[in-house]
Design a protein around this nucleic acid. Structure first.
Lengths: 174, 174
DNA sequence: TTCTCAGATGATAATTATTATCGTCCGGTA
DNA sequence: TACCGGACGATAATAATTATCATCTGAGAA
């Protein structure tokens, strides 16, 4: 297993490609293409540091000074919903605590947010040998598995939270 | 690689063991043992679902109705600081967004919170084959590597945020 | 091009989680 | 038993996010 920090020049080419058909992908999702949306995805694609809503808002305001922070929050969620962006971390809206000190990982139900501990034999050993990130001194890691629990799968009801789909894709990701 | 959901009976035994020397571990850390602290760690160890501060507070209040929610927050952070508990997720206090849709993972600096994308060749393939959590239908996963970036390592200054140590251990964890 | 309307936006209020403040209380040692 | 530093409870303050609502606009239809 080999770890590689993603480099910036390839990112820029990727960003150009994404911008090229952003409007088409918006319309395909049934959403009007507004200048705000274009500016926000552009700022997000230009950034290399996984910015917060407020950072993006500041960036966008350099060209569109009237844009509201609420719009940036809304738009970022929208972009996540249609698969144009991802939210890093936080399926949870509040901190969760764990008394289990043994090395383990977590399965989180994306609907009810229930969390269960899991042990994955071999993973920590494999990662421990593999993780040497240039520019970083690794301290530890955590794997979160996003899933739907049987309870939620059976009761066909959907969660009220919009973030069910916003942090998670159908394919392994993040 | 084999995934195993941690079972409850073993957890109960583990919890009893932890409670047995909690007072000693507190004093070893230089902290007085208060009834609140004991009640809070007990509630945390009894819970199987990685509760939030408010949930623990409600549980604790069944026996100690006077306990303040602020105390629960403070105490949970304290427990994390001395290594008696862990915070699940959230090295971040606000949502971070990512425009990169290609499968990848993240390295996060525990001091400055900077995030970089990393690709770990082989990991997703290995996990994709391994993850079959009973009771859950997996959708995806995310690996977060906690680290100190070179910038922060050089400038010896410590982060103001208390959570540098609260979510991360010296050994691979979570 | 103009009309029309669902949905987007901006301004602002409200909500939620968490942390800070401060006066009082108490665990643990002398 | 007295003392002291830290912990506690009550409450205010802060920070991030979401809701509300009146207005505006993108984009398809006429």
């Amino acid at each position: 297993m080999e770890l590689k920090v993603v480099n910036d020049s390839r990112r820029a080419a990727y960003a150009r490609g994404r911008m090229a058909d952003f409007a088409a992908r918006c319309r395909a999702a049934g959403l009007p293409v507004t200048p705000q949306r274009a500016a926000i995805i552009e700022a997000l694609l230009r950034a290399t540091d996984h910015p917060r809503a407020e950072t993006i808002c500041a960036e966008v305001r350099r060209r569109h000074p009237h844009v509201s922070l609420a719009t940036v929050h809304r738009t970022l969620e929208t972009l996540c919903r249609i698969g144009e962006a991802r939210k890093v971390t936080t399926l949870h809206d509040s901190a969760r605590y764990d008394g289990n000190l043994k090395p383990h990982h977590h399965v989180v139900c994306v609907r009810c947010r229930r969390i269960r501990d899991v042990e994955i034999a071999g993973l920590d050993t494999a990662l421990g040998g593999a993780i040497r990130a240039p520019g970083f001194k690794p301290l530890g890691w955590s794997l979160e598995i996003q899933a739907v629990c049987d309870n939620c799968a059976n009761s066909g009801e959907r969660a009220g939270r919009s973030s069910e789909t916003s942090g998670v894709g159908k394919t392994p990701h993040n």
